[in-house]
Structure formats: C-alpha cells, structure tokens
Design a protein around this nucleic acid. Structure first.
Length: 718
DNA sequence: CCAATCGACGTTTTT
DNA sequence: CGTCGATTGG
C-alpha cells in the first residue's frame, strides 16, 4: 500500500483534498461528490502516506450511522490499522472525555445519560415540584429553552432573564440542573457543554489533547452548532490541522441550532485555510443536477457551487399535478409499479415528504396494491417503553442515585408504591437535598415509612440490591436476563394481552440477545461492561426496525433522506403551505432553508425524479386548496415535463374498505372515468358516505374537482 | 387499576 | 380528520 494507490480512482479535486498540505482545510462538498470517500482517503493518506500516528487523529461526525460507515471504510481501505484513533459522533467523543476525566468534570464515575424522553420526564417532575401548571407552562417548551441555552454554552448563572416568562424558564433550568447534578445525570446537550467546560477549565487537559490531536476532521460541518464549534476551537491546538467537510446548500438543521455561518467563521478563526470545492457529481443525471442547481441559485446566502456531471443528461424531471392527495399517491404507486414492471427493484424507489403525516395516504395506496414498504423514522429499539423499563433497572443497578430511573420503575410492575408513598419520598429528598434512593433509606431508618408502604419500598430496594449483587459476577446478558425476570417486568408484559404484549416480550428477549452481541467500544476499558452498554443504549438508540434488507419501497422525510441516494425518487406535496411549509413562508431565512431542503430531496435522485403536488388536500379535516410550490417555478422550466396521464384504475376499493352495496352497484370506483351531462368527462378521485347520500368527488378535465351526490348526478361510466 | 371519553393540537430530528 | 394526553368514573 502506497500513496499512489490511495490516490487512484479519485478525481483531481478529490485528490487535492486528500493530499492537501498539512494546513487547515475547508472542503465544500456538493451532493454526491464523494465527500465520505475524501474523508476516508484523507485519513488513510495521513496515517499511511505521511506516517501520522492514528493516536493523533480525531474524526467527528453527527450520526452514529455516519461514524460507523466511516470506520468501516477506513478499516477496509487500510486493513484495520486505526487503533488509537478517535472516531465518533460529537456526543460519543464528549462522553468519552467525560468518562476519562469525570472527576475534573465534576461527575460521579457512574454518571448516566438521559435521552430526550428521560429529560422531558425529569423536567415534568421538576416543574411539578415547583407547583407549576403544565397547561400554562408546557414542559416541552421548558425543555426547548434549556437545550437551546445549553447549545449556546449558557449556564443559568450566565443568563439574565429579560421578562417574567423567561424568569420562569430560567428557574426551571436551574432546578432541573440541580436535580441532574444530584442524581449524576447528563442529558445530550450537557455532554457537549460539560466536555467544553472540562477543556476550558483544565489547562493540563487542554494542552494534552491539543498536543495529541494533530489532525481533526469534521463531517457535515454545516450542521455544527455554537457549542460544537467552540469545542473544536478548544480541541484544536496551535499545531493542529483541521479539515472540515460540508455543504452550505445542504444545511437543513438551522431550526435545531445548526449554524451555517460556522463555515464562514472557520475561514477566519482557522486562517489560513485552503478551500477546495468538490463539484463533480457522480450520482444524478445532468437534468436532475441542472434542475437542482437552478433551484438553489435562488438562495442569496451561498458560498457558491455548481454541480456538474460528465454522465448522461437523462430524462426530464416529471411534474405531476394530482387532484388531491389520494390521486397523488395513486400516481406515485403506479409509476413505481411501472418501474418494477420494467425490471427495477422496489427498493430503488424512495418517496420523500416534508412531514410524517403525509405518509399515511401513501401507505394506503401501497397497501392496496400489496406493495411492501419501509418507513424510516419512528420509535427506535432503545426508545421502546419495555426496553426503557428494563434499562431503568440496569441503571439503578449501576447507580442507585439515578432518580430518573428510580421514578420510572419504582412501581413498575405495580408493587404497592403509590403516589402517596412516592410523594413522601420526594418531599424527603427535597428537604434533605438528596436523591430518592437515599431519601427512602432515611425514611425507612426513621420508621416514617412502615407498614405496607414501608415493606413495599424496602422490598424494592432489596430487589435492586439483589439484582446488583447477583449480577456482578455474571456476564452482561445474564445480568439483563436476571433483571427483567426477577424484577417482574418480563412477567408483567407476558400478562399483557394482545399482540402488543407479545411484541414487548419479544423485544425484551431481543434485548438479552443484543447484550450477548455487545462489544464494548474501544476506549471504554475503564468502564464496567454494564455502564458501557447503558451508554451505548442512550447514545445510539438503535435502528427503527429489522426489515432493512427487504426489497421494499423506501419512505421518509427529506430530512431523513440526507446522505442517501435512490435511482427513483418522488418528492410529494410540492405545494405552497406544505413545501415550503406554512410557517416558513414569512421568514426569508426559513424559506431559504426550505429551499435547501428541496435541493437535498431532489439531489437524492440518481436516474429519475418526480415532483408531485395535489390541487386539493385534506388537512386537519378540511379540504385545503394549495397552489403549486414556488420551487417548481424556480426550477429551469426546460428541465421539467408535466405529466398529464391520469392514473390507472386499480383494484376495486370494495376489496379493502367497507362501502355500501349501492355504491358498488353503480359501477363507480376510485379511478373510474365518468361522464357528466354538464361538466363533461372526469375521474373519480374520492367518495364519502353510504346509501342514497353517498357522494363522489370527480375531477373533471375541464371543470376541475366537484363533489356530486351519486343519487342525483347522472354519471355515465366510461 | 384500567377503560372510556373529552379536548387540544397540528414541521422537520439526532444525540 | 387523527392522535395523544389527561381526566374521570367504574
């Protein structure tokens, strides 16, 4: 393996980036321009070409998926020589720092991580203890406030509340943080903030890491927020070289605190920095790129970049105007069907939408044709109720002071510790400034809790102690098995009736097997296997579901689709008010972000792209009439082709839904073409009601969509 | 302790 | 129109 080999198969710009001199580097990498390839090859180049020690390299990503893909590809390229290299997500690496230096960070050795669900529960509890009405003060908003402040690097003491309302949020922030500190709990934003403070306040640590990491590489840099940026600045020392890879045109997380202008700031703060643009696209046809370029050119705030390809220009981008969302869905399905009839695979096709609610109609349409599909997003493995219950027991085994875990399972399964008893415990904890577990102990010792309640509480404590004692000599999976069995969780879910209970039991069983396969990551040697697993569960909540490799149509939001590619892509709901979304049309910055989102959606397509919209859409129980999205007008019109073909009649609806006999006898069905004496020809796109009152919605070729009462309107079947 | 019912609400999501 | 959450009654 030599340098030449590492540079083979890269284009000029990619090579320039991979073999760039050791300076700070900004790689502006357009969609499909091979940015991961560049990152991976750069790492290999540093280590194998320039003999940089892997210990001196840190590579940061946003998602676990990106991190593991990168790790896999680097290992493949270099044959697994990356021991000692730090490669992970911002949160994962921050966690690692905090574990190593928990003392300097002011954390107990066995501190636990709160996911957003845990965090919200804890905030609710804190608010209740402050006697706040959650109607008037939504806990979610409190969470938003707290996380936003942490993401800006602000502690309660740094904040001067400007008005009574903010004073309240501020007070909640303070109380919540004390509760976390007391119980040894760290939320996601806290991981980053603590790690930042750790480096900021400990010169010897800062010096150590700055001297260690000669090379810092950051993926998806446009998504960094204020604290992540500050973190990088602290970590990169005077001799460090920082390479950031990103695309300002694909910045779609501004609403979550991401700051595109970190790219601009980088050029100042890390000057002198070299900028390299990767503009050759290997993914899409020329026409798709031209359309996407034309759209994104409407954004004012850009670093400027134009994707090109030396491939074929391909088919035009097709625009379909559905009469309503049902028609839109049916069109999409019919085109996917045609793709497969032509020899394509179901999984070649992706349907992308702006919000999750849009998936429903599409699912219906796919279901009708018995087409398999996979929806991305939703509850993930470690977020499921039964799994979180089990994890709470494990967390208590690891840390008795974990109040969040305590609250979750103290009475799950029911063991006679009701609201009253827990109330007494909470009060004691508050008065003594201690954790719930310790408060229980105090109350039992003082015999304040006695009788039935006292027995129940001491029974619970003995249970947890026993789990810990029994488990400590066992392997992890055995510990988990003991915990779910002896706590009664398993039996509780077994007793639950229906498929739901069945599925939960299966999930618990899967948790045991997941722990069998669990391998503590590099850098967690100091931790117990249990703690390492708990961190893994919190930081990496697992995939949505298992059927990943099935040949199925892929459905997801455009946010979720970032980084993926598909031969055949449908972007649906391209209407004013949907996309751009209603709430973004008034704000120029948000509108630009929507446009970037559209750009991201379009550039997922390799061969064929469809943009669809519906003239009418049932939204919140009303029929809304939207105009086509402005984005459609912004795309160079020569790239577009309007589809006029009406969707095909599918199988009769009666096979799937109950509908009146009357309706069927008329021969009217969705998709049926009909003739009306006054309005002319049209297609049935919707129906409602039964019997004599049943109505159908017909989209007339000339007169547009109309609702007609079947009994009165004389409709001839064509 | 569970179920039925009422009411509020209604982007995007990772860690 | 749905969903989710909370409340209330059995």
């Amino acid at each position: 393996m030599n340098i030449a080999h590492l540079l083979e198969g890269l284009n000029g710009k990619q090579r320039e980036a991979v073999a760039a001199p050791q300076s700070n580097l900004l790689v502006l990498a357009g969609a499909g321009s091979g940015k991961t390839r560049v990152l991976v090859h750069r790492i290999a180049y540093l280590i194998q070409g320039l003999n940089v020690s892997p210990y001196a390299v840190m590579a940061v990503t946003f998602t676990n998926k990106a991190a593991s893909e990168m790790r896999g590809r680097v290992e493949q390229l270099m044959g697994g020589q990356l021991r000692g290299m730090w490669l992970g997500t911002f949160h994962g690496l921050a966690h690692r720092l905090l574990r190593f230096h928990h003392q300097d960070a002011g954390l107990p050795e066995n501190f636990q991580i709160l996911d957003s669900d845990d965090q919200l529960r804890l905030i609710k509890r804190v608010m209740r203890s402050l006697n706040l009405d959650d109607k008037k003060w939504p806990p979610r908003q409190a969470m938003g406030y707290i996380n936003a402040k942490k993401d800006e690097g602000l502690r309660p003491k740094h904040i001067d509340p400007q008005d009574p309302v903010e004073r309240l949020w501020h007070q909640i922030y303070e109380a919540y943080q004390s509760a976390c500190n007391l119980a040894g709990l760290v939320d996601f934003a806290e991981l980053l903030l603590r790690a930042l403070e750790l480096l900021r306040d400990n010169q010897h640590l800062r010096d150590h890491y700055q001297a260690r990491f000669h090379h810092v590489l950051v993926d998806e840099f446009q998504d960094t927020n204020a604290i992540q940026y500050a973190w990088l600045r602290l970590l990169a020392g005077p001799q460090s070289h920082v390479m950031i890879v990103g695309d300002d045109d694909q910045s779609i997380y501004g609403w979550r605190g991401a700051r595109v202008d970190n790219i601009h700031r980088f050029l100042d703060d890390f000057a002198p920095a070299v900028t390299i643009r990767l503009e050759q696209n290997y993914r899409s046809t020329g026409t798709i790129l031209k359309a996407a370029n034309g759209l994104i050119a409407h954004n004012a705030e850009r670093l400027g970049k134009d994707l090109w390809t030396d491939g074929k220009s391909g088919e035009p981008v097709s625009v379909y105007a559905g009469f309503n969302e049902i028609d839109e869905a049916r069109f999409v399905v019919s085109r996917i069907q045609a793709w497969v009839d032509d020899g394509g695979r179901w999984s070649d096709a992706a349907i992308l939408y702006r919000n999750n609610a849009q998936s429903r109609v599409l699912e219906d349409a796919l279901l009708r044709e018995s087409i398999k599909y996979r929806i991305y997003g939703g509850l993930r493995f470690f977020e499921r109720q039964e799994i979180k219950d089990a994890l709470a027991y494990l967390r208590l085994m690891a840390s008795r002071d974990d109040d969040a875990a305590f609250e979750r399972v103290v009475n799950t399964p029911a063991r006679g510790i009701g609201d009253r008893t827990i109330g007494i415990v909470r009060q004691q904890a508050r008065e003594q400034g201690t954790t719930l577990w310790r408060a229980c102990r105090q109350l039992l010792d003082a015999k304040v809790l006695s009788g039935r309640a006292g027995n129940a509480v001491s029974g619970f404590m003995t249970l947890v102690d026993n789990l810990d004692e029994q488990g400590c000599d066992e392997v992890l999976s055995r510990q988990v098995d003991i915990a779910i069995k002896e706590s009664g969780l398993f039996a509780m879910y077994q007793a639950e009736k229906g498929e739901k209970g069945q599925a939960r039991v299966e999930n618990l069983e899967e948790l045991v097997s997941a722990t069998q396969d669990f391998e503590p990551p590099e850098g967690s040697e100091e931790m117990s296997e249990l703690n390492a697993f708990l961190a893994h569960a919190a930081l990496e909540s697992g995939d949505t579901q298992a059927d990943e490799f099935e040949d199925a149509v892929q459905m997801m939001t455009m946010h979720t689709a970032k980084g993926l590619e598909f031969p055949l892509v449908f972007v649906v709901g391209v209407e004013e008010g949907m996309f751009p979304s209603m709430q973004s049309v008034t704000d120029p910055d948000r509108l630009e972000e929507e446009r970037r989102l559209c750009y991201v959606g379009m550039t997922r397509a390799m061969k064929k792209l469809y943009l669809c919209y519906a003239e009418s859409r049932r939204l919140y129980g009303r029929d809304e009439y939207h105009t086509p999205s402005r984005f459609l007008r912004e795309i160079p019109q020569e790239c577009l082709e309007e589809v006029r073909v009406r969707t095909q009649v599918t199988r009769p609806i009666t096979q799937y839904q109950k509908s009146s006999d009357q309706f069927n006898e008329t021969g009217l069905n969705l998709g049926q073409r009909v003739r009306h004496s006054k309005f002319g020809d049209g297609i049935i796109i919707n129906y409602e009601g039964t019997g004599p009152q049943s109505r159908v919605q017909v989209a007339f070729d000339e007169a547009g969509p109309k609702w007609l009462v079947v009994a009165y309107a004389r409709l001839d079947v064509l």
